[in-house]
Computed example of a mutant assay.
Amino acid sequence: MTEALSMNQIIHAAVRRDVDRTERALRQLADGDLARARQVRGAWRNLVRELTHHHEAEDSIAWPFLASRGFDTTLLTAMEEEHVAMKQALTASSAAIDAVVASPTTVAAAAAADAVARAREVINAHLAHEEADVEGVMGALEDDPAWKAEARKMRPASIVDAANALAWMQDGAGERERSSLRATIPGPVVTLLTLLLARRYRRDVAPVWR
């Protein structure tokens, strides 16, 4: 039986998936298709929002906790520096996608796709580094009451934000990610949250990838 993924790994899978989908959509954008350009920008902004929340929570909560437990601060500093590099890459990609909306040409779309491809290199390198060197440590703390309390602080601020995050993680996910998510959060809860509360994602983002 395949080992279940952690919530951290499920989030990472969603990030990788949407970076790939965004680049592909930009490369396929028809000249003058402003409506599609706006759709892609909306989906990209959703990805940036989810990824930013995830990494700001790690910087402000996860890394300080690990440092307090004597974890290698050199590695934690590297994680923070990689987050800064990712933020810069996301900002550059966002500006390039905004330029496509301003002028939806195939030339602008190709330039934006190239920016997203460069961002993917930075993002994937960090995600792989974190999974290789930090994931195991966080997994070992799974039953630690103090860590559980800190992990709860890393969740979205509202139930609506949580629902939209769940919808995002599931949209286009493979069976391993879906089954791992069901194992982490009871199926009926996931269904209720995504069907009743994930309105923003269903309205603004999900149609982009249909």
Rank of each mutant, 00 (worst) to 15 (best):
E56D: 07
R118V: 00
N46A: 06
A43W: 08
T74A: 10
E81K: 13
A115V: 05
T22P: 07
R16D: 15
G70P: 00
A62D: 06
M79H: 08
A117E: 03
G70M: 05
A14T: 11
A119M: 05
R118S: 02
T73G: 05
I123P: 00
A25I: 11
R41F: 09
R41H: 08
W44Y: 12
E58C: 02
S93L: 06
A43F: 12
H55C: 04
A25D: 13
A119I: 01
L26C: 11
R118I: 00
R38L: 06
T74G: 10
D18W: 15
D72N: 00
A89H: 01
R45S: 02
R38G: 10
M79T: 06
T91V: 07
T52N: 00
E81H: 09
A67V: 09
A13Q: 03
A95T: 08
T73E: 03
D20H: 15
W44P: 12
R21N: 15
V40M: 06
A102D: 15
E50W: 00
S94A: 03
A85H: 07
A95C: 12
L66G: 09
A95F: 08
T91D: 10
A99I: 07
K87I: 02
L66N: 09
A37M: 11
L34Q: 12
V48L: 06
A25G: 05
S94F: 13
S94T: 09
D114T: 09
P64R: 09
H55L: 11
W63P: 01
P104Y: 03
F71N: 02
E82H: 13
S94Q: 12
L90I: 09
E81C: 15
L75P: 07
